[in-house]
Design a protein around this nucleic acid. Structure first.
Ligand SMILES: [Zn+2]
Ligand SMILES: [Zn+2]
Ligand SMILES: [Zn+2]
Ligand SMILES: [Zn+2]
Lengths: 117, 117
DNA sequence: TTCTATTTGCGAACCGTTCGCAAAATCATC
DNA sequence: GATGATTTTGCGAACGGTTCGCAAATAGAA
C-alpha cells in the first residue's frame, strides 16, 4: 500500500514505470507486474483515476471521488483541482440545440502553476 | 487523399486500423504504414485532430482548425461540435484562486445523440 | 506441521505504432 | 521513350507499454 501513499503524496499523474522507480528508490522493491495489478485494484476501488497522455502512456492520480477537474502544470506536472460549475448550462444547450443527451464530460486545463509561471 | 475524404465523411473518430479497413472495402488498398504516414501528414497540416481512447488507441477526426469541443455519442460514435464559451471565466478564476496561468484546455462531452437516445 | 488459498516475479505474448530498407512508382532531363 | 534522381510505398522487424500464464513464494487455516 506504499503505492497508494506514493500517489497521494505526488499530487501529479505518474506512470506505472515512474511508480516502480520510486518504489525502488525507497527500496520497497516490487515487480512491475505487481505495480500494474495494484493500480488496477486501486482504480476498481475508486481510489485512483487514470488518464492517457499524448504518448499513449497511462498515468495514475490519487483521487477522492467527488466530481471536479484538473489543472495540470506544464512545468512541474503538479495537478490542482478545479471545481466544476458551468456544466449545467452546457447540458441544456446541448439538449436544445443538438438533441444531445449529455451523460458525462471531461475537462482538462493546461498551463503554469504559481511556482512555474 | 481518400483518407482525408473518409475522415471528412465519417464525422467520427476513426483508428488507423478502421481507416485501413475502409480503404480495403472500397478497394483502394494501401498498406497500414501508408495510412499512418498519411495521418501524420494530415495532422501536421492541421487537417486532422487526434485523441487517444480509453484503450490507448489513437483515433483521428477531420478538423477545420477553429477552436471548439466535441460531443461524442456513446451509441454510434458520431461527433458533434460544441462551441467553446464559458472558458474566459475559468481563466480568471484559476488565476485569482490558484495563481494558475491557463494556457490551453480540453473538454469532451459524452452522451447520446438525437438518433441514439 | 501440512494443506490450501493468495500474492508475487518472471518471461512470453500482445497490440498499436514506428523504423529501416529495398522495391516500386513518379518526376526531370536528355 | 530512355536514363537517372527523387519520392512514395510495402514489408517485416523492432519498439514500448500493458497483459497473461504459470510456477515459485508467501500467507492463512486447520
Ligand atoms: Zn508547476
Ligand atoms: Zn465537470
Ligand atoms: Zn448516436
Ligand atoms: Zn474551449
Amino acid at each position: 500500500m506504499r503505492i497508494a501513499a506514493i500517489l497521494r503524496e505526488a499530487r501529479q499523474y505518474l506512470s506505472a514505470a515512474e511508480i516502480h522507480a520510486r518504489l525502488e528508490r525507497e527500496s520497497a522493491e516490487v515487480s512491475l507486474s505487481t505495480v500494474y495489478r495494484t493500480l488496477e485494484f486501486l482504480r476498481a476501488q475508486g481510489a485512483v483515476s487514470q488518464r492517457t497522455d499524448e504518448a499513449g502512456e497511462t498515468t495514475y492520480l490519487s483521487c477522492d471521488g467527488d466530481h471536479h477537474h484538473h489543472a495540470i502544470c506544464r512545468g512541474c506536472g503538479r495537478v490542482e483541482d478545479v471545481d466544476c460549475e458551468a456544466i449545467d448550462q452546457f447540458t441544456e444547450d446541448l439538449d436544445q440545440h443538438n438533441g444531445f443527451l449529455l451523460e458525462s464530460h471531461s475537462m482538462e486545463f493546461f498551463g503554469r502553476c504559481r511556482a512555474c509561471r
